[in-house]
Design a protein around this nucleic acid. Sequence first.
DNA 1: CTACTCATGTAAATAGTTACATGATTTG
DNA 2: CAAATCATGTAACTATTTACATGAGTAG
Lengths: 188, 188
Amino acid sequence: MGALKYAILGLLYQKNMTGYELTKEFETTLLQSWRAKHSQVYPELKSLTEKGLIQYEVKIAGNVLEKKEYSITEEGKNEFLQWAVKLNPIKPIPKDEFRLQLFFSSCIKPEERLLLLENQFTNHHNRLLELRKAIKKFSSIPPDDETEFGDYLVLLGAIMNEENTCKWLKKCITMCQEKMGIEVAAEN
Amino acid sequence: MGALKYAILGLLYQKNMTGYELTKEFETTLLQSWRAKHSQVYPELKSLTEKGLIQYEVKIAGNVLEKKEYSITEEGKNEFLQWAVKLNPIKPIPKDEFRLQLFFSSCIKPEERLLLLENQFTNHHNRLLELRKAIKKFSSIPPDDETEFGDYLVLLGAIMNEENTCKWLKKCITMCQEKMGIEVAAEN
DNA sequence: CTACTCATGTAAATAGTTACATGATTTG
DNA sequence: CAAATCATGTAACTATTTACATGAGTAG
């Protein structure tokens, strides 16, 4: 997909960081837009360094521990800014194993389907509560020229998304219960 | 992720099909839940055949053209039904290059950000219209014991999702315009 | 006879995950 | 001094995409 490259360049555009710190960013602030494990980050840093888009300085922490502090080069900044304004076509609807399960759910008992839906609802609702907690760090909408503004918009999107997913799942649950109710009623 | 296997087993559980027809399903009905190209389908069919989960019969179309019509075995049905009722934890929020771009958008001019948002809105709105057209094939909610029911629920989810995405993008656009308006007003 | 769709594969490259491997520093 | 966290890497595997490769059937 090639976006890992720009995620790293973007983070280094904001601030010099080590591979470890970059990985932390992927686990926290970038969680709603991109993810990468350290095993993907380190090789990518190597490759970007070879291409001259970033560079590093070795820093000693404590007595011996070597840290590589990466910074973005002018060339790196150029490539990043080019990507940052590029109009991209929208991506196909992301793959989702649960939706696949639901798609095929006529193969299983209605009660089983209900269990699947309720499990999803609980999980998504919990995530929603966590996201709502996370957005509290913004007491008001940040100014549009600060790094926090993008963070805020993406987090808002994630919250609206989870709210909508919960709404959909509730609707599915209601529809399933109505169908089951009708069947039970017809049997009596 | 391993879900390709179950997508194929699920389709063959419904109906015998060739690799070509399976690929078509991924491009049409399964578009909202899972996708795979023919170059992934054919090797997977080979592997599933070797594992004894599916089998095939060679059919001749026209004079010479050989088609392999695949069917699911009893063993395959068992594995599929086991997966079909399994409670899975929810997946991490999917990666999205646009959200990454928006996250870093404090690096670009407010007008550029607005262009990015408006482009996304147009594209998502078009997709929404297409999905609304697609759901018209259901004149009413299908019975919960027919294959169409899962299809309907997933399609409904896709529509609600696009509606919500459009709502979020509109909100972002309004917020950006307000910020820009305030700046312009402050300058005068 | 031409263009489009049907039909099946392989090869090469990229992307991503999980596991392996090691060692230093800090906090309780 | 033990446990958690900081810190950096590689190896093996799985998943996915794009391109290569070929040929038959059908409709205009």
